[in-house]
Design a protein around this nucleic acid. Structure first.
Lengths: 157, 157
DNA sequence: GCACGCTCGTCAGGTACCTGTCAATATCGC
DNA sequence: GCGATATTGACAGGTACCTGACGAGCGTGC
């Protein structure tokens, strides 16, 4: 059988391959719900942190403001989110999930969860904790920002 | 301190974040050697498997043939690889590292290795083995191809 | 007040991918 | 041998990102 994983040299490329593969699986599970992976991530984080601005979402999903804005445009056209002017800051706008958005997310979330659980099947909780710690260390390699400005703790997806 | 890793919900996005971060770090280490991350991956795999075709490289780095061809074009213009017509198959061409390419790779490889080692510092060999196993499992999630055609075992980067 | 620096959302332009397609060639079934 | 199918490298065209810049607005220091 064609053993595929020979990336013995660079763990970076193994991580990339894992990401591509997981993205594919998750995307497949998501397009039954009419969502892209990035849109799902945004809905997820907006559900946990209502009232974020476009720039906040961009930072959270670690993409450019421009890209986040375009993707949120799709969500807005689909009626899953709505933008409201920020009461204090007149340049930014707050983003909220609509009822449709919450319903869509509620339908998609267990599908993704199921897929991810199936993928990690067979690993013990302790092993998954190690994996989590390692990935977190990797993810923190370049997070030199530290710009937790005014608002409270915005997690990065 | 602003704890960043709160992707408690979806490990997929944690993997993505890890990949983006590692790619950034590796890219930083590589552009001192005038290489992009994808180009480095290609040189790496071409060094281990001389004579691969464009399509082989594309499969190995899991990208489209078109993208691989463009990227290899850059490497060719830089004089790091050369294409030769395949002796048996007249539609494909074999790709080999030039001496310059080998030298460039030889210079870049320890830099990347050092960066990756520094990132994983503090984890035991057993823990890293677990991480490796988990990532390999994830990477294999969509590898339903099994098209190890004629040639011998081509690893995927 | 007011100049300075920063961030907001947005516009323009570029880059790096992808899919879809094509002729030429290889490979397999018969 | 010979047709059906698949593969290779290349050609378009589209998409999804990014960077760079802009005016508008916010915050701080003087």
């Amino acid at each position: 059988m064609g053993a595929v994983t020979d990336d013995k040299e660079c763990s970076t490329f193994l991580v990339r391959h894992a990401w591509l593969s997981m993205r594919g699986v998750v995307a497949e599970a998501l397009d039954q719900h009419g969502l892209s992976v990035a849109q799902f991530a945004s809905l997820l984080i907006l559900d946990n942190h209502p009232g974020m601005s476009v720039a906040d979402v961009a930072r959270a999903v670690s993409t450019a403001r421009q890209s986040a804005n375009e993707m949120l445009g799709g969500l807005e056209r689909a009626g899953l989110i709505e933008r409201r002017p920020h009461p204090q800051d007149r340049r930014s706008q707050q983003i909220f999930l609509t009822d449709r958005g919450r319903a869509r997310l509620g339908a998609a979330r267990p599908a993704v969860r199921a897929v991810e659980d199936r993928l990690s099947e067979g690993f013990t909780a302790g092993e998954l904790a190690v994996v989590n710690a390692w990935l977190s260390r990797m993810a923190a390699a370049t997070s030199v920002d530290g710009t937790s400005v005014g608002r409270e703790e915005i997690p990065t997806i």
